[in-house]
Amino acid sequence: MLIGLSTPVVVQTPATASSWEAGADIEDIARIAQTADRLGFDYLTCSEHVAVPAADVGVRGAVYWDPLATLGFLAARTKRIRLATSVLVLGYHHPLAIAKRYGTLDRVSGGRLVLGVGVGSLQPEFEMLGAPWGDRGARADDAIRALRASLCEPEPVYHGEFYRFDAMVVEPHAVQARVPIWVGGRSRCSLRRAVELADGWMPFGLRASEVAEMLAAVDVPDGFVVALPTGPVDPRAPSECLKRLRRLREAGATAVTCSLVATSADHYCEQLSALRALAGEL
């Protein structure tokens, strides 16, 4: 099972963020990423929101660092850990813009990109950006197909329902032969989208039993990644931490995205070491 990290500080939601994160700086983030890299964690994440409606801040939080700038910085400060968007909102971008920007990230990181994508759920944010809302699901399907045709190609060709392009050159492009695409969401439609069009599913806001039930209803391809969030875990309570990780694995997780309880950046790095040791017992 892959062990990933929900990078602290760069996303601060009330349900998972610790108080120390509000005063942290970029060097704290870099040190945490370097520690995770050295310890052998598989990936770290960064989410996307351009602007959160004030009415939703109490639930979603207000802090969302831009994933491209953040992961580009962390690419330069790490060596092997993969860099995952969790998630990029497809409706906010043309597929070729994603292919250029994140293909460049794949290039500068030496092929470490995992492109996590989602349909999006904040209608006011869509409206503020002038992005279509009502047909965003169909547009997302078409965008994923367009991305598959363009991420790793210098002269991509695609003719779909919403996106069409040819006779265009996109350089640089991704260096991986196939950039992993993981689909976020919490619905059966998101799982269908992931199984049919992508390489993995990274749901949120679901109980382990709900995930297991949804996975049992589909034919999951070989090598398909199911990345489940742990919620806040504390390796200082090892039995409870292991219990949660095993429960997620039993529900179908092939990867877990961990959020750690900590009191400072230094303590967070200590918690990473403890979690890495515990993961060896899975």
Rank of each mutant, 00 (worst) to 15 (best):
T7F: 07
P8V: 03
V9A: 01
V10E: 06
T13D: 03
T13C: 02
S18E: 13
S18M: 13
A22K: 15
A24R: 14
D25R: 10
D25I: 03
I26N: 08
E27S: 08
A30G: 11
A30Q: 09
Q34C: 04
T45M: 07
H49V: 02
H49K: 09
G61I: 13
A62E: 11
A62T: 01
V63Y: 08
W65M: 14
A69G: 12
L71P: 12
A75Y: 14
T78D: 11
T78V: 12
K79A: 15
K79L: 04
L83M: 10
L83W: 06
L90C: 15
I98S: 13
A99W: 15
K100C: 02
V108Y: 06
G111Q: 11
G120K: 00
S121F: 15
L122D: 04
E125F: 03
E127M: 02
E127C: 00
W133L: 05
R139D: 02
R145P: 07
R148P: 04
S150Y: 01
H159Q: 00
M168S: 03
M168H: 10
V175I: 15
P180R: 11
W182D: 04
C189T: 06
R193W: 12
A194T: 14
A194G: 13
D199C: 13
M202T: 00
G205Y: 07
E210M: 05
V211P: 09
E213H: 09
A217Y: 02
D219Y: 02
D219P: 03
D222E: 14
V226D: 01
V226L: 00
V226G: 09
A227F: 02
G231H: 03
G231L: 04
P232N: 12
E240Q: 01
K243Y: 13
K243I: 01
R244A: 01
R249A: 13
R249Y: 09
T254H: 10
V256R: 07
T257P: 00
L260C: 05
A265T: 13
Y268P: 00
Q271C: 05
Q271P: 03
L275T: 11
